[in-house]
Computed example of a mutant assay.
Amino acid sequence: MDKKEEILKVLSLNLRKVMAGSNLNFEQLQEIRLRVNKPLIVIYKNKEYFINKEYKFDSSKKNAYIVTQNEMRETMEYISNYSLYAFEDEIRQGFITIQGGHRVGVAGKAVTDGDKVKNLKHISFINIRLSHQIQGCATPILPYIMEEELVYHTLIISPPGGGKTTLLRDIIRQISNGAAEGKGTTVGVVDERSEIGACYMGIPQNDLGIRTDILDCCPKAVGMMMLIRSMSPEVIAVDEIGSREDMEALEYAINCGCKLIATVHGSSVDDIINKPLIGRLVKEKIFERYIILNAKRNIGYIETICDSRGTVLFHG
């Protein structure tokens, strides 16, 4: 099943006609935004467009197709295979992963128990984010984060939407598989937001390599401990670290002999140093390599790779 089929089959019948009739290249489609009684919006080639009633791209909302409540209800039925209850754990986190690894963000009325969200009802907002793998995108940086079969503790620094998860995903795949003549590495992935592996029914929809084990929808700090105790990873990979619990788990993993590959939001090493928790790890030179992405140049653009002393090893 190709990407177009994977997306169209979870949309209401009317929305399928609209999206199919718009002649979109689904390989370049990034998001579909649905809101009750609001215009149909897509993010396509990094730009926002309305889809109008003639199924055409439009920069104006004047003639935009308006999404109805019935279309939202029907779409949620297809997304959940007519059983929202079966996806209750995912919904309380605000998203459902569908076949193909595409992530459906949802919002509506939160049902709470104290300060915890138990469920969502009256779902009136849907954001379908299409999964895009770029296999090979990590190839240029591998010589900087590996020496023979040794992986350096690596931190990928990027602003939101800068391509850090895509890069992390391909690093995991390549070090897991190993080069044709080399040894692969056992990798443990804690995929808290189900974005790295994008598991559907427990099976990763993204290729993370043949020696990779995944804990899906598990808090990073808890998951790192679980993987170390149960799966004996040589490398642990996590996305978007930041909490105190994350830092403690990272230090525990290092003391257990695991190598780390992690990502964090930021624009430079100096920016990260100023953050109170992770800044300490940077000052203590825990990370041996830093990869800085610059989304202003291009999504996934590698601006700099440097070592723990700040020596620039690569400049884009």
Results as ranks from 00 to 15, higher is better:
Lys9Pro: 00
Leu11Met: 15
Val18Asp: 07
Ala20Phe: 09
Gly21Leu: 12
Leu24Trp: 13
Glu27Lys: 09
Glu27Asp: 15
Glu31Leu: 10
Tyr44Ser: 14
Lys45Trp: 07
Asn46Phe: 09
Asp58Ala: 15
Ala64Lys: 10
Tyr65Asn: 08
Ile66Ser: 07
Gln69Tyr: 15
Asn70Gln: 13
Glu71Pro: 01
Thr75Ala: 09
Asn81Val: 00
Tyr85Pro: 00
Tyr85Trp: 04
Ala86Val: 00
Glu90Lys: 04
Glu90Arg: 07
Phe95Glu: 06
Ile98Tyr: 08
Ala110Glu: 07
Asp115Pro: 02
Lys116Cys: 12
Lys116His: 08
Lys118Tyr: 01
Lys121Ser: 09
Ile126Lys: 05
Arg129Ile: 03
Ala138Val: 05
Ile141Met: 07
Ile141Arg: 04
Ile145Tyr: 04
Glu148Lys: 12
Tyr152Trp: 09
His153Asp: 14
Thr154Phe: 11
Ile157Met: 00
Leu167Cys: 05
Ile171Gln: 02
Ile172Cys: 06
Lys183Leu: 13
Gly202Asn: 04
Ile203Arg: 05
Leu208Glu: 02
Arg211Gln: 14
Cys217Pro: 00
Pro219Glu: 07
Val222Gly: 04
Met224Glu: 11
Met225Pro: 02
Met226Tyr: 03
Leu227Asp: 02
Ile228Val: 14
Gly242Val: 06
Leu250Gly: 01
Tyr252Met: 13
Ala262His: 13
Val269Pro: 00
Asp271Ile: 10
Ile272Lys: 06
Asn274Trp: 02
Arg280Ser: 13
Leu281Cys: 02
Arg289Tyr: 11
Tyr290Phe: 15
Ile292Arg: 02
Leu293Phe: 14
Ala295Cys: 05
Lys296Trp: 00
Arg297Trp: 01
Ile305His: 06
Asp307Phe: 14
Thr311Met: 06
His315Ile: 00
Gly316Leu: 09
